[in-house]
């Protein structure tokens, strides 16, 4: 399992209800089901990936996350997860509000755009950065949002959404190993992972993950 998913899994309490938006083949849900006894549901737009997840015996909806999240009742889940998808979301504020409507906590992970390699590339070559985490060219990229960890914190403040937990990690996109970055995360981390709480409610904040 991807390292960022391992971090997310470590945040999930046992016997909870989890919604994984963009669950791919369901490896996180499958892991959580086995290790934490969670009752999980996934949403995945790719037929092959969704099919593979359902074939694993997971409860998964083949569809678009914006449409599918609308149908869940309020507070249907304890956690709503959006891993490595935020950078492809057209309207992040609406989606995150929806996530916090259907779940009490939401967990978001995304590639940190201001990682030092991206900065160097931009500075020295004068071109849009292409990295292992963001491997596309400007014209074929599904990643329509560039998200520095620092900006994501500001975004949460603007939404009045408390950050309950956050951790920055350095890993390769498909890598199953990585490490937590505590020193200058906005410069040195390849991914940021945040747990968000209900708007207007004070969450206890810690940075260990």
């Amino acid at each position: 399992m991807r390292f960022d998913l391992q971090v997310i899994a470590s945040w999930i309490e046992p016997d909870t209800r989890v919604l994984d938006l963009g669950c791919r083949t369901g490896s996180l849900l499958d892991h959580l089901r086995r290790e934490k006894g969670t009752r999980g549901t996934g949403v995945e737009i790719d037929e092959e990936a969704a099919g593979e997840a359902i074939a694993k015996g997971l409860s998964v909806i083949h569809g678009d996350i914006y449409e599918e999240i609308e149908d869940y009742p309020d507070n249907a889940f304890d956690y709503v997860i959006l891993s490595q998808t935020l950078q492809q979301v057209y309207d992040p504020a609406t989606l995150i509000r929806e996530m916090l409507r259907v779940g009490s906590r939401c967990i978001v992970s995304f590639p940190n755009f201001t990682h030092i390699r991206n900065r160097f590339q931009m500075f020295f070559t004068g071109r849009a950065p292409v990295s292992k985490e963001l491997p596309y060219d400007w014209h074929d990229s599904p990643n329509i949002r560039v998200i520095p960890i620092t900006d994501f914190r500001r975004f949460c403040a603007q939404l009045h959404v408390p950050i309950v937990k956050e951790v920055a990690i350095s890993t390769h996109h498909h890598d199953t190993r990585g490490r937590v970055i505590t020193f200058l995360p906005n410069l040195l981390a390849t991914f940021g992972i945040f747990m968000l709480g209900q708007p207007g409610r004070r969450g206890e904040r810690d940075r260990d993950g």
């Binding site: 037929e47 359902i54 409860s59 998964v60 909806i61 083949h62 569809g63 249907a76």
Partner: peptide, 11 residues
Amino acid sequence: KKNGLDVSFCE
């Protein structure tokens, strides 16, 4: 889904 039922769907 609106009834909180466990449902999988694939097109």
